[in-house]
C-alpha cells in the first residue's frame, strides 16, 4: 500500500513537471496548430542555464530557477520574432522539417559547448532526502515540484480565464482576422505567448534535471512525451493537457515499477490506443485540423 502511495506521489510529481514542460506546446501546437518539435530545446536551455549558474557561479538553486525561465523566454521571444512567425501558415511538413532542424542544431551545439555527459544541478540541503508522512516516504524534491507546479498551474488557469491577455489570446487563436479587427495586436500576443511557453519549458527543464536527467539529447528523448501530453490532452482547454500529464506521469512511473521489462512500451501503446479511439485527444472536443 505504501509503495503504491509512493508511486502515486512520484507519478503526480512527474506528471505535474511534464505539464509545466509541455503547456507551452499545448498553446502553440494545440491552439495555434503549429507543430513545434523543438519545444524540448527550450526546456534544455533552461536546464543548462540553471546548472551553469548554480554549479559554476554558486547562485542559490531558487535563484537559478527564475533565471532559467527568463533566459528560455528570451530565447523563445527572439526566435519567434526572427523565425517561427514566418512558419505559422506553412504546412505541417515544413513545420516538422524546420523544428527538427532546430532540434538537431541545439543538440549538436549544446554537445559542443557543454559536453555530452549528463549534468546534475547542485541541490540545497533542504531539498535532499525524504520526509515521512503517515508512514509514506515522500521525497522533498518531488514535494517541491508538486508545490511549484501546482501554483503555476493555478496561475496559468487564472491568467487564461480571467485576465485581459487571456481573452486576447483566445480571440487571436479563434479568429486572428476578427481579433485584428478588435484592435488586438495579434503578432505581439503570439510572440508573448510563445516566449511565456518557452520560459515555462525552461523552468521545467531546470526543475526536471534532477528527475529526468539533463544531457544534450534531452529535446529528442522527451519530444514524444510533450507531444503525448498535447495530443492526448486535446486542445479545448488547459485541463485536458493537465490531466493527460498526470495520467502519463503516473502511468510511466507505475509502468516502470510494476512491469520494468516493458519500459516505455506501456506509454507508447497507451498513446496509440487513445489516439485511435479519440483522434482529437482524450479530453478534446474541438477538431484538430
Amino acid at each position: 500500500m505504501t509503495t503504491f502511495l509512493t508511486i502515486l506521489f512520484d507519478g503526480v510529481a512527474y506528471g505535474m513537471l511534464l505539464f509545466v514542460l509541455a503547456c507551452g506546446l499545448a498553446v502553440t501546437l494545440g491552439l495555434m496548430n503549429f507543430v513545434n518539435l523543438a519545444h524540448g530545446a527550450f526546456a534544455m536551455a533552461g536546464g543548462y542555464v540553471c546548472a551553469m549558474l548554480v554549479n559554476r557561479y554558486g547562485l542559490p538553486f531558487f535563484a537559478g530557477l527564475p533565471m532559467a525561465f527568463v533566459v528560455s523566454a528570451a530565447i523563445g521571444f527572439v526566435l519567434e520574432r526572427l523565425l517561427y512567425r514566418h512558419l505559422y501558415h506553412r504546412n505541417h511538413l515544413d513545420q516538422v522539417l524546420f523544428t527538427v532542424g532546430l532540434v538537431f542544431m541545439s543538440v549538436a551545439a549544446v554537445d559542443y559547448v557543454m559536453g555530452s555527459s549528463q549534468v546534475f544541478i547542485n541541490l540545497p540541503q533542504v531539498l535532499q532526502g525524504q520526509i515521512d508522512l503517515f508512514g509514506v516516504g515522500i521525497g522533498r524534491y518531488r514535494l517541491m515540484i508538486i508545490v511549484i507546479c501546482g501554483i503555476l498551474t493555478v496561475l496559468l488557469q487564472l491568467t487564461l480565464a480571467r485576465t485581459r491577455f487571456g481573452s486576447q489570446l483566445r480571440a487571436a487563436v479563434d479568429d486572428p482576422r476578427a481579433a485584428v479587427g478588435l484592435g488586438i495586436n495579434v503578432p505581439w500576443v503570439f510572440a508573448l505567448t510563445f516566449a511565456f511557453g518557452s520560459g515555462l519549458a525552461g523552468l521545467g527543464g531546470a526543475l526536471g534535471a534532477e528527475i529526468l536527467g539533463l544531457d544534450p539529447h534531452f529535446p529528442l528523448k522527451f519530444m514524444i512525451y510533450f507531444l503525448i501530453v498535447v495530443t492526448v490532452g486535446g486542445s479545448s482547454s488547459i485541463t485536458g493537457p493537465f490531466l493527460a500529464s498526470l495520467l502519463l506521469g503516473i502511468g510511466d512511473v507505475a509502468g516502470k515499477y510494476y512491469v520494468p521489462k516493458l519500459g516505455a512500451f506501456v506509454i507508447y501503446t497507451m498513446m496509440i490506443v487513445i489516439l485511435i479511439l479519440r483522434p482529437n485527444g482524450l479530453f478534446g472536443k474541438t477538431a484538430v485540423r
Binding site: 496548430n33 505541417h92 512500451f265 496509440i272 489516439l275 484538430v288
Partner: peptide, 28 residues
C-alpha cells in the same frame, strides 16, 4: 488502419509512436 484514422497531426504522432514502440520492443 491506425494511420488513416486521424488527421495530419494524429498521423504524425501515430507514425512516430509505432517506430518508438518497435525500438522499445527490439530493446526489450
Amino acid at each position: 488502419f491506425l494511420v488513416m484514422r486521424g488527421a495530419d497531426l494524429t498521423r504524425l504522432m501515430v507514425t512516430l509512436g509505432i517506430a518508438l514502440l518497435l525500438r522499445e520492443l527490439a530493446n526489450r
